[in-house]
Structures are given as C-alpha cells and as structure tokens.
Amino acid sequence: MKTQILMRTARKRLAILWFIFGGFLFLILFLQTLLTSYYGDKVDQAWSWFLPTIFPTLSLITAVFVNDALDQDKPDKSVDNFFYILTFALSLVYLAAISLVFLICPLTQANPIDLMKLSNFGLGPLQGIIVASMGIFFLKKGNQ
C-alpha cells in the first residue's frame, strides 16, 4: 500500500468531491427557490445557512487551482496517504450531512429552516476540522 500520494492528485480528487457535492446541493437549493415558494418568506435564511457551509472551501480550492495553473513548472509534492484518506472521509461525511439536511426534509414535518439551524450544532465543529485537514492539501507545502 502506498504511503504517499501526489499533492496534485489528492487535490484533484478532493476538488471533484467538493464540486460534485457542492454543485448538487446548490442545484437543489436553487430549484427550491426558483420553482416554488419552498422557503416562503425565509429564502434569505436558507441561502444564509447554505453559502457559508460550502463556499469558503470551494473558494479555497478554486484559488489554489488557479495558483497552480499559473505555476505549472513547479515540481509536484507528495503527502501522507493517511491524511488524504482522512480528509476525503471527513469531507464525505460533512457533505453527506449537509445533503441529509436537504434530503430528509420531505420525510419529516419539520420546518426546513429549523432543521438547517439545528444542523449547525453538528456541522459547525465538523467544518472546523474539515478546514484544518483541507489546509494540509491547499495551504501546506508538501514534501518534495
């Protein structure tokens, strides 16, 4: 089993995960807003909850990719495979938890806005851990 993974490969995989999930969740919220008054008078609250959960990380990933694209000559670095798996798993759990907030709504009589607010108790700390582990790939300088 490999103990190291190339930084660019790890970044790409993480980026794919985040963009697919992010795009999927964005599409759900966009359609809910556009098609009907799903959130009634509280559309702003739905978006205010959603945007900070996904977009800071997506912005970071995009910024790093842009930076990489401008600096193609730099040799690739490697990082411990454990960190990659940990970050990928944490990201998957976090994004699945956000998806669950949307997907569980039709199955309950709970108010979607209340569910979003309630989910912050779990998502907040998890987001902190995710940002820290993502930093390994998108901020830290890897081993040569």
Binding site: I28, L35, T36, S37, Y38, G40, L103, C105, P106, L107
Partner: peptide
Amino acid sequence: SYITALFTS
C-alpha cells in the same frame, strides 16, 4: 411524491 416534496411546496 418524494421528488415533488423535495422541490415544491
């Protein structure tokens, strides 16, 4: 009915 309930109210 799930898809309908997910996107419409």
